[in-house]
Nucleic acid binder design. Structure first.
Length: 894
RNA sequence: AGGCCCGUAGCUCAGUUGGUUAGAGCGCUUCCUUGACACGGAAGAGGUCGAUGGUUCGAGUCCAUUCGGGCCUACCA
């Protein structure tokens, strides 16, 4: 039997195989543990996948998000948690509807032609065909989610829960319907929430328009506006009550130009005396501030635009014109009449629809809202009391900032795709019945009822997911066990859209949950993945990297490792392929290290690498050392992951595996591996033990290659189905060995010093040299014990210990604990050596001087902690020794 | 308008509560095809931490000011 591993590392070949294996074997599916069962006693770790849009395509942000989630989940699973990661997709109301409407357009059809029902089934069809793209990609990338629990936000059970929530909120008086100013997208023809509006700076114009005083056209007021077309809906002009310029006009009326309607002059704080003329037009149906002012003064609300933002019949001669055509015509007409006083440049922010980028129109319309304050209060408290903890912590500030200035949430959308509002309108008496199921007739007058045509904001249903995925409103065992979820990992872009809403709704509906009402205990907000030049990736810039393409080029493990190695809370990631190439090399290194081990295993045969640590292992310094290092590293990686320092964790395993395990350990044991079969077997048994642990350590970061090698190690008969189900290495104090680590460090220093000298002298690589060492008895003993290591790694054949200092030698190196010189005839470059030593000497002199200055400073001595002072004293002693040695070297060179 | 973040080697980033000689990867220079790996090995060069001022025995690390870059929130006519 041999350990099968192809000669070259081909990530594509192994990854597809394992990705399928993990899914087919249902390795990460979690059955709800029965009461009293073994699993029921485990600590639980639950994570909800931020559901990608059905319309979505996987981008680097997803890849980062998934990598972080998968690392955490694999690590927790291996650390003994019952680990549940629930995947799903979001029906994405507007986005999906737009997508399918576009498709219809290519067929020359519209949703109106199709009708509501047919259009919706068309979307379901579309979803069947294209909806699973991201999740399929996730499977390929090996995300360790429970595919048996996959959901879609429009599933029957989730939809029922949405209805239940709406009805309950309504019963609690937290849902209301009313005519308010909302952000209206004329393209999508629906209301959208404040969050769905993106603001952009806009260099526009401010138009100054004169409104004549009624009955006295010699007098007038001048107002300023950026949207002159809205004047058609003006129902007053306001001045500030304290603005003495206009006291005389209080109570008078104005003639609204163009329409010749009389409108009152009102006094209201809305008018800022500092702005423009101090008079402001009031358009209650098209501006939120004006709307409030209108309510205060009982002004009529005249809506002058239709759903497509064309002027309606209220606009008199302008009816039928698009809002911007109307603007031009109005400005033209005003100019003709001499009422346009002036125009000035004015830059302000315009709101655009998040989805289609059409300029949003504030418009009065009948919508459903959630009274948000009561929900927000509790949501603020939950974070203040640290029931939910943010990483990085300053996102809590952003969260508070928003929560404390929150506005009621407009939840109705004039779309067809989404959860329909469970409200029925009586066609006779207009009574509205909100109910869990359709009423047969009006509860008030018995008339026929029609369901409200609107659907709910997509974020309404996704805001409920932390409890609805576990079966709410039923009282399920899943809810008992898995709620609250442990962690949420997501991007800051949906902090308000989703995270804040989940907190509000979770706290509200899970208020009596024994393990706490919050939907999750921790929120980790990940950063942005930028391109190698730190530019934001965007389609228009054309710098978008497709994660699947990069993955195919370098392997999933390498891409994951790249992202992990740069994922530090709060820091954006500049993704560069050269770096990924470097981690592909790392994977290749792991691969070849494994092949190296297998080569020797197959040569001697009969070694059980799983039998535990062989007895004689502790006899070897390098074994004590690498075991100690492994345990230190395990401790440090666990700690870093606890703090979501993916970068620290990844870099730690990287340098352990490559820098210590491969570069030093494997090199040291090579002679034993290729020596007698007994020696090889003993070395291999311990090597296998370390290698296997290192694979487990690496597994959450590089699940594919570690799975492949792990199975190969067991020759197809592993102790479990997957390395992902084995235990994560911990730091065992008993395995730590400070002495071994110090001794190895000294030997490494000595070896490097010798290599150094050889390089400087340009000794032929194949030529062995002799060395002379001046040191203390302890080090001498250590070197003698590890003579063969030194001979091999430093290419030395003759080691002499000398009583006297070697500082006068032409070629030598000195540290505080030893001096070493090469026994070598060749001439050296005296000038270069002199320069090098002078440089080193000066560096040390500067250090000594600064240290001594500090030690002579009474303030320092009295105020600095004693261990710092002691450390400095010790350093001064060592510096003096080194400086003295360097001086003698310099003299010797002359 | 308010709030937040960043500026450390050629490039991309680390640098924990201020404490001894500021680190890594990539790139660069020199040497080496030694049977795991040239996707490799060995050795090396290279920063005074955006600027200024302050606190402190001691600052890349805290404070202030300033310059440069980025982000978020917002109903400014």
């Amino acid at each position: 039997m041999s350990h099968e591993l192809p000669k070259t590392y081909d990530p594509g070949a192994i990854e597809v195989r394992w990705a399928e294996y993990w899914v087919n074997e249902k390795l990460f599916s979690v059955k709800t543990p029965e009461p009293g069962s073994k699993d029921a006693k485990l600590p639980v770790f639950t994570l909800l996948l931020p559901p990608p849009n059905v319309t979505g395509r996987l981008h680097m942000g997803h890849m980062l998000n998934q990598t972080e989630m998968d690392i955490v989940m694999r690590w927790r699973r291996m650390s003994g948690y019952l680990t549940l990661w629930v995947p799903g997709t979001d029906h994405a109301g507007i986005a999906t509807q737009m997508m399918v409407e576009k498709q219809l357009a290519t067929e020359g059809s519209t949703r109106q032609q199709l009708g509501r029902e047919a259009f919706i089934s068309r979307i379901w069809e579309w979803r069947e065909h294209y909806g699973g793209a991201i999740l399929a990609q996730m499977k390929r990338l090996g995300a360790s989610v429970d595919w048996d629990r996959e959901y879609f936000t429009m599933d029957d059970n989730l939809s029922r829960a949405v209805t239940e929530v709406f009805v309950r909120l309504h019963e609690q008086g937290l849902v209301y319907r009313g005519n308010y100013i909302v952000n209206w997208c004329p393209r999508c023809q629906t209301a959208i929430s404040d969050l769905e509006v993106v603001h952009e700076d806009y260099a526009g114009k401010l138009y100054q328009i004169r409104y004549p005083v009624s009955g006295d056209h010699s007098k007038s007021l001048t107002i300023e506006t950026t949207r002159p077309e809205t004047m058609l809906g003006d129902t007053a002009v306001a001045v500030n009550p304290r603005d003495e310029r206009y006291t005389a006009l209080h109570g008078r009326k104005l003639v609204l130009p163009l329409l010749d309607r009389e409108i009152p002059i009102i006094t209201d704080e809305l008018a800022d005396p500092e702005f423009g003329s101090g008079a402001v037009k009031v358009t209650p149906a098209h501006d939120p501030n004006d709307f409030q002012a209108g309510l205060r003064h009982n002004l009529p609300q005249i809506n002058v635009m239709d759903q497509e933002a064309r002027i309606n019949q209220n606009g008199g001669p302008y009816a039928g014109l698009d809002r911007y055509e109307a603007r031009e015509k109005i400005l033209h007409d005003l100019t003709e009449r001499g009422l346009l006083v002036g125009t000035k440049d004015h830059s302000y922010a315009i709101g655009k629809c998040q989805r289609c980028k059409t300029i949003v129109e504030p418009r009065l319309s009948m919508q459903w809202f959630i009274k948000i304050q009561p929900l927000a209060d509790r949501a603020i408290e939950a974070v203040e009391k640290r029931e939910i903890v943010f990483t990085p912590e300053n996102y809590a500030k952003t969260y508070f900032e928003w929560m404390r200035n929150i506005h009621d949430w407009c939840i109705s959308r004039q779309l067809w795709w989404g959860h329909r509002i469970p409200a029925w309108h009586c066609s006779k008496c207009n009574e509205i019945t909100v109910a869990r199921t359709a009423p047969s007739s009006c509860s008030k007058c018995g008339g026929a009822v029609v369901q409200d045509p609107d659907v709910l904001d997509t974020w309404f249903s996704s805001g409920l997911l932390p409890f609805t995925v576990f079966g709410w409103p039923e009282k399920t065992r899943d809810l008992d066990i898995f709620y609250p979820t442990s962690l949420l990992i997501t991007g800051f872009d949906i902090l308000f859209f989703w995270v804040a809403r989940m907190i509000m709704l979770g706290c509200h509906f899970m208020a009596d949950h024994p393990q706490g009402s919050v939907p999750f205990k921790e929120v980790y907000i990940h950063a942005l993945v930028r391109d190698a030049e730190r530019q934001k990736m965007s389609k228009t810039k054309g710098n978008v990297l497709d994660p699947i393409e990069v993955t195919e080029k370098f392997g999933t493990d390498a891409v994951r490792f790249t992202l992990a190695s740069m994922a530090s809370p709060g820091t954006d990631i500049a993704f560069s392929e050269t770096r990924t190439d470097g981690y592909r090399a790392f994977a290749n290194k792991i691969w070849n290290a494994a092949r190296f081990m297998f080569m020797h295993l197959d040569r001697v045969g009969g070694v059980s690498i799983t039998a535990g640590v062989p007895k004689d292992a502790q006899n070897y310094l390098e074994n004590r050392w690498i075991l100690s290092r492994l345990n230190h590293v395990a401790g440090s990686v666990n700690q870093s992951l606890t703090e979501y320092r993916f970068d620290e964790a990844a870099n730690t395993v990287y340098s352990f595996f490559w820098g210590e395990f491969c570069d030093w350990y494997l090199e040291i044991i090579k002679p034993r591996l290729s020596g007698s079969e007994n020696d090889a077997r003993s070395a291999l048994a311990f090597l296998g033990h370390i290698f296997e642990a290192a694979l487990r350590l690496l597994s959450p970061f590089m699940p594919f290659i570690t799975e492949e090698i792990w199975h190969a190690m067991y020759e197809g008969k592993p102790p479990g189905k997957s390395i992902a189900l084995s235990r994560y290495p911990q730091c065992h104090k008993a395995a730590l060995n400070d002495q071994a680590e110090e001794q190895m460090m000294l030997l490494q220093e000595l070896i490097v010093s010798i290599r150094n000298l050889r390089a400087e002298l340009k000794v032929e690589p194949k030529e062995k040299t002799g060395i002379r060492v001046h040191t203390n008895a302890e080090v001498e003993k250590l070197v003698k014990e590890n003579r063969s290591m030194l001979e091999r790694l430093a290419n030395v054949e003759d080691i002499q210990f000398v009583p006297g200092s070697l500082a006068n030698e032409k070629v030598s190196r000195a540290t505080a604990r030893f001096e070493v010189a090469l026994i070598y005839e060749q001439k050296i470059d005296v000038a270069a050596e002199t320069e090098r030593i002078t440089k080193e000497l000066n560096k040390n002199k500067v250090l000594l001087a600064s240290a001594e200055t500090r030690l002579n400073n009474q303030q320092f001595l009295s105020k600095a902690p004693p261990e710092i002072v002691e450390g400095l004293k010790k350093q001064v002693e060592e510096l003096k020794v080194i400086i003295e040695k360097l001086r003698r070297r310099l003299d010797g060179l002359k």
